[in-house]
Nucleic acid binder design. Structure first.
Lengths: 210, 210
DNA sequence: GTATGTATACCCCAATACGGGGGATTTTTC
DNA sequence: GAAAAATCCCCCGTATTGGGGTATACATAC
């Protein structure tokens, strides 16, 4: 298998020890090759154009341009490159920001170092490698509150409101009278202790009622 | 370690071969015990009250009440029980429905059978076990379209609209004039070829512009 | 160095939607 | 059979909406 063209990787990580460690580990693995490693995003954006790696390991805590901000910049010059985030912290905002900006994987450095090879393989296969704690955060973000004060019908209507629908559209779509929708909305406002669509949506999303 | 109280599991799966296979596999593993297995949700809902398992393996394709509908019913009687979905299909809607209703894990049966033990362990540890293809679907749902026709400012405003904010609220919050917000919204409508907030939100979400 | 795109701001208008006040009836659920 | 949920009705004044047209400052691009 030694003739197979290797999976190419680039590393952006300011800690020299970690950077060299990963480089060594990856290069020591058959069919994997580190094309280049960078200590900051600014340098990386210049070098990556020539490297054209399949996978980039991207640290979040970097001097200058942060890892999160780097994602769209990298995607801009290398749209097909897979980005795997590396970090010591599992900050929730960072996780969702990185994912919405286009990261394909997210690993915390507490992971066994060897897992990085599996992660690279997985991402090349179209997968989405995540550390256990990251998977937990991601899945939890989907879970709805089982203790919503809203009834089923009220929840349905609030969801439609959150989709920007007017009362009359909601009425037509649900085959009920406009007045019924108004009644439900009034009840929703009382239950959530709000006085506008905006606040109702905010409150409901905060509490994961919708 | 044999004296440690085992992790208790229940199985809801209509295929007898699979059901018995999992039961055997789990019971054969130290510190794991299948309390009961059911071929349908109706029976399970009666028996589970006494079983009180820590983890439930729940098939999606079931006769009568489907696995997805079973989740809230199970959560209702056993709020602390972890539910791991089992299925042969990785249908997207099913994945998101199961997760919003409270499933903690999602495995496709194509997975190596032994992985079920790891998954049970992971879920008990507060994790979120997923098959590779499921992780991919979940992560992909976060990715935004990098080819949005909307400018940065337009995207910001459309996000606020999707949060139910009025033009005037958006103006105040962004420290710009109401008329400026109106101009942006007009441009958004032209670009997305829509004529209402509702359609703009729908179009933007469909294309993952927001 | 001029064209393009972006963000900003202004005016006018008619139609609709909104939030809040009150009350009533039927269907479902426990 | 009591309680909760879903349905429908009327009145009111204010705010919001979508669409028409126009204009300026600024940056970047080519």
């Amino acid at each position: 298998m030694e003739n197979k063209s290797p999976i190419t990787v680039a590393i952006i990580e300011d800690d020299e020890t970690i950077r060299n460690g990963f480089t060594y580990l990856i290069n020591a693995t058959e069919n994997y090759k580190v094309l280049n490693s960078y200590s900051n995003v600014e340098d990386a954006l210049i070098g990556l154009v020539n490297d054209k790696p399949q996978v980039i390991l991207l640290d979040i805590e970097l001097p200058g341009i942060k890892g999160i901000e780097a994602i769209p910049k990298i995607k801009h010059i290398l749209p097909k490159t897979y980005i795997i985030m590396l970090t010591v912290y599992d900050n929730e905002d960072n996780v969702f920001n990185a994912l919405t900006k286009g990261a394909s994987g997210y690993l915390t450095k507490s992971d066994n170092t060897e897992k990085i090879i599996d992660a690279i393989q997985e991402v090349v296969n179209g997968g989405a490698p995540m550390s256990m704690n990251i998977a937990k955060i991601v899945i939890k973000s989907f879970h709805k509150n089982q203790n919503s004060p809203l009834t089923k019908r009220e929840t349905e209507i609030l969801e439609q409101i959150a989709n920007g629908k007017s009362r009359s559209k909601i009425a037509k779509q649900m085959f009920i009278d406009l007045e019924t929708v108004k009644s439900h909305i009034k009840n929703i406002y009382v239950k959530l202790n709000v006085h506008s669509r905006e606040d109702a949506i905010k409150e409901a999303k905060n509490n994961k009622y919708i």
